[in-house]
Amino acid sequence: MAVTEVRISIHPAGLNPKDIAEKIKEKFPDQVVDVTEFRDQVSVIVKKDRIVTICKYLHDDPLLSLDHLQDLTAADYLKKKEVRFEVVYNLYSIKYRHKIRIRAQVPENDTKISSVVPIWAGANWHERECFDMFGIIFTGHPDLRRILMPEDWEGYPLRKDYPLKGPEPENDWPGFTEVLKRSKELREFEWEG
């Protein structure tokens, strides 16, 4: 039979994420802005200029081999941080079982960053979603279109300055007030059962 059941051991993770962060710092001293740690997870904040080179190094280095792009997303820090957007790469090595998070700063006035699709093919839809939700433009992406929202949608929904609710229904449809009035009248009666 082609399919076999294997016993995967539970052994501790490979490299300490702090060591990986040190390695990145050594290799790209002018690119790393900061390193933060929370609940044993380490993020390396980098400038966006050489993100592809950094990712390529992390993916190809035989000792790191971060081959699995767990997640690619963005976050909007409107009025919270100096640089408004951050593109977040969660990387994991299936072979060595260590992980690291890379956060690339993307300023508001220049929302362009190089695409990592040539490195991880799976980044394709993630980047499309980022573009759809935050308006971050990934240069070199093979097919950058909206993905979840309709193609003619205006605005970027997950930005912090995008409202949660749409306009009130009364403004859209005049019949709505009539329905509300009628339901108020009917509420006077007590329904049984």
Binding site: A2, V3, T4, E5, V6, R7, I8
Partner: peptide, 12 residues
Amino acid sequence: EVPIGTEGDTYD
């Protein structure tokens, strides 16, 4: 145990 395939096709 974790089942692992070899061919990577629909059957596996």
